[in-house]
Design a protein around this nucleic acid. Structure first.
Length: 655
RNA sequence: GCCGGUGUAGCUCAGUGGUAGAGCAGCUGUUUUGUAAACAGCAGGUCGUGGGUUCAAUUCCUAUCACCGGCUCCA
């Protein structure tokens, strides 16, 4: 019955391998490199261990460590080694799930008597893992019956829950009723779908990163497990490069840079998640806000202001107290009622719309406010400027007639992207979130219409987007816009949301051409999202080196000697008269030292003036990231930087 | 909120059961400097906060606040 097996390689060629031929056999035939490096085989789209037989006639490819798929296998296998090490070192420990993730893997454990891991444990565990890797233990796949599985995992209740189907784990839940395990030694076996690398010797370029608590099945009412995160790569070089990327990201950390550059701080006296803006940070913020106002003015928005507090009746009407009371600050009892800090601006904007009779001729009505809101974020979720309790939204609410919806969304998209581009972002991702059938208000028709309008706007702009099914808020579908930063990280910033709920709740209407009252549709739109968060993203995007138009200090002027200080301050006055942010630095320290300070401040320009400059009305121009240029006429420098600022260029002009 | 960690000068950090130290920054002098660190001196901290143990606590315990890494949540 055993006959040769023929398989088809990715290039279309056929290959005959012996009876019961495996991926390993194929790899051997393909050459020594393949034989040494291949991790798994993929036959007709199904991943197989290298020692599993290949089906006759299958299209087969081998997976190598350098590929995404290969890395996933490496990481998954490394997670097993982690589990083996932990179970060996901590008697009584049990394990739950351990999948590969971006850049690495994790495994969740439960230690007896509520014990926890610390950094020293990570060292120990890591050493044990290296030992296991050195032993080149094979990963042996077995298909077993439930009885046997129950026996094998009798001491591991989380595995039993997975076997029972109560917990779903994509890497180990039985598939099609087949229970598979991977055994490395007599002592260590894990419930797992695989596939895995042939033996642990294929692993080793890993690092255990941190330990963290994680709820079993991601459910905060359940047991908190001890999760160990690690990173794993196909080579030492890759591992090193990854660790360097982490260092690069750490250098850009907005919390660190905000302190170093004296932009803002989070005084403990204020309480968690509340920031104060120092003059330099406030300068950048003001420029951001001024630009935003200018654009909104040009874009046909009307500016409004609303208070920070409101009577509870407002939030009953808006539904916030029903849906989001947990996220609001506790009520304040006052002599004439109960008041709340506002978590959103929209209810107040609805009051403005509701004031007086609205005509269809006023639509679309675009209300805009830099509105400060307060949300009670749980203490453990706070994170610098990215997650904060008091923040200001660049919030706008657009009230449109139903037949205006598509056009309004399309022009809104233009508007948003144009403003984001001005801040130096040019790579976007769009997410379209659709109705959650479990949780929504409004008729199906209007949901379809609004979703189509959002989709059409994206299509009209030729933008690709990801549909996130059932991810919409209860009140309407939305488009979220993510930007990519300078080192490739994604940040969710802008959002355009349709809302059929609030116009109902506030009984908003306008009189149309037919003389009848109609219900407007409302669009929520945040562009920066929160000013605080957007600023944080800007800091990280630019690594603190703001473009000249945003930089809190644009030019420092340094005299070579003290007797040049007078000329230096004259230059500063001329720069200021032209609207630049400039300052003179007295020659009380060596020039090199003063330059260094300016560089550490990441200033766009440092001007040095000496004898010849005083004589010729010139300066030596030292731009951030460029070469020094001597004898530049002051007037020329002014014109140069002026056009740079107007164009909102992202790096200082050089030469 | 939950798990783990951290909190010492403006910043970055060392250190100890016997009431604390460095570098940078600051101030004062001296130096007069052509593109990333001149020299000297001075000043600066109730060691996050409250309670406890102790003859004695910054150090040990405890509570609390804040921050860091995750989990959960995010209108």
């Amino acid at each position: 019955m055993s006959s040769d097996v023929t398989i088809i390689l990715p290039d279309g060629s056929e290959k005959v391998i012996g009876p019961g031929g495996t991926g390993a056999d194929l790899a051997t035939q393909l050459g020594s490199r393949a034989a040494n490096d291949a991790l798994i085989a993929v036959a007709n789209g199904t991943q197989l261990d290298l020692n599993q037989p290949l089906p006759d006639g299958a299209s087969v490819s081998l997976v190598f460590p350098a590929s995404e798929e290969g890395l996933e296998v490496l990481r998954h296998s490394t997670a097993h080694v982690l589990a083996q090490a932990v179970l060996a070192l901590y008697p009584g420990a049990t394990f739950s799930i351990g999948p590969p993730i971006e850049d690495g893997f994790y495994y969740d454990f439960d230690l007896p008597d509520g014990q926890t891991f610390n950094d020293d444990d990570l060292e120990r565990i890591s050493a044990k893992m290296k030992e296991i890797v050195g032993r080149k233990q094979p990963f042996i796949r077995n298909e077993i019956q439930r009885e046997e599985a129950d026996q094998l995992f009798a001491d591991h209740p989380y595995k039993l829950e997975i076997l029972d189907g109560e917990a779903d784990d994509p890497t180990s839940s039985p598939q099609g009723g087949v229970i598979t395990t991977y055994r490395n030694t007599d002592e260590f076996v894990d419930l797992c779908r695989g596939p895995h690398v042939p033996d642990t010797g294929y692993l080793g370029h890993f690092k255990l990163m941190r330990v963290a608590g994680a709820y079993w099945r991601g459910d905060e009412t359940r047991q908190m497990l001890q999760r160990i995160y690690g990173t794993a790569w196909s080579s030492k070089k890759e591992l090193k490069a990854h660790l360097e990327r982490l260092e690069e990201a750490a250098k850009r950390d907005h919390r660190k840079l905000a302190t170093e550059l004296d932009l803002l701080s989070f005084p403990t006296e204020l309480g968690g998640g509340l920031a104060v803006w120092h003059p330099k940070g406030a300068t950048v913020r003001k420029i951001m806000e001024d630009y935003s106002r200018q654009r909104h003015e040009e874009g046909g928005y009307e500016f409004v202001y609303t208070p920070h507090l409101a009577n509870e009746r407002l939030f009953q009407t808006s539904g916030h107290l029903d849906f989001y009371a947990d996220g609001m600050y506790p009520p304040m009892e006052m002599d004439n009622g109960t008041y709340y800090l506002k978590p959103m601006n929209c209810p107040m904007h609805c009051l403005i719309f509701a004031h007086g009779q609205r005509s269809y001729k006023e639509l679309p009505l675009r209300l805009f406010e830099l509105g400060t809101v307060y949300r009670y974020e749980r203490s453990g979720t706070l994170h610098g400027l990215m997650r904060i309790r008091g923040f200001t939204q660049d919030d706008s609410h657009l009230y449109v007639a139903p037949d205006q919806l598509a056009d309004e969304i399309a022009s809104l998209l233009d508007f948003v992207l144009s403003v984001l581009r001005a801040f130096g972002f040019d790579e976007f991702t769009f997410n379209l979130s659709t109705k959650n059938p479990e949780k929504y208000v409004g008729s199906d028709d209007i949901w379809d219409e609004a979703t189509d309008a959002l989709r059409e706007a994206l299509d009209r702009h030729g933008l690709e987007y990801v549909v996130k099914d059932a991810d919409a808020a209860f009140y309407g579908p939305k488009i979220d816009i993510d930007v990519k930063d300078a080192i490739g990280r994604s940040w969710q910033l802008s959002t355009i949301q349709c809302d059929f709920n609030l116009p109902e709740r506030f009984d908003l209407h306008y009189v149309a051409a037919d003389g009848e009252r109609h219900r407007p549709i409302m669009l929520h739109r945040a562009l920066f999202g929160s000013i605080e968060r957007f600023f944080g993203v800007l800091i990280e995007h630019y690594g603190g080196a703001f473009p000249t138009w945003l930089s809190p200090m644009q030019v420092q002027v340094l005299g070579v000697r003290a007797d040049h200080d007078t000329f230096a301050s004259q230059v500063v006055e001329r720069l200021k008269a032209q609207g630049f942010r400039a300052e003179m630095v007295e020659a009380d320290n060596p020039l090199g030292s003063r330059i260094r300070r300016g560089k550490l401040e990441k200033l766009p320009y440092i001007l040095v003036v000496g004898d010849t400059d005083v004589e010729n009305d010139t300066a030596g121009v030292n731009p951030r990231g460029g070469e020094v240029e001597r004898d530049v006429p002051i007037s020329e420098f002014i014109e140069r930087v002026k056009s740079e600022v107007e164009a909102k260029e992202t790096t200082p002009r050089v030469g």
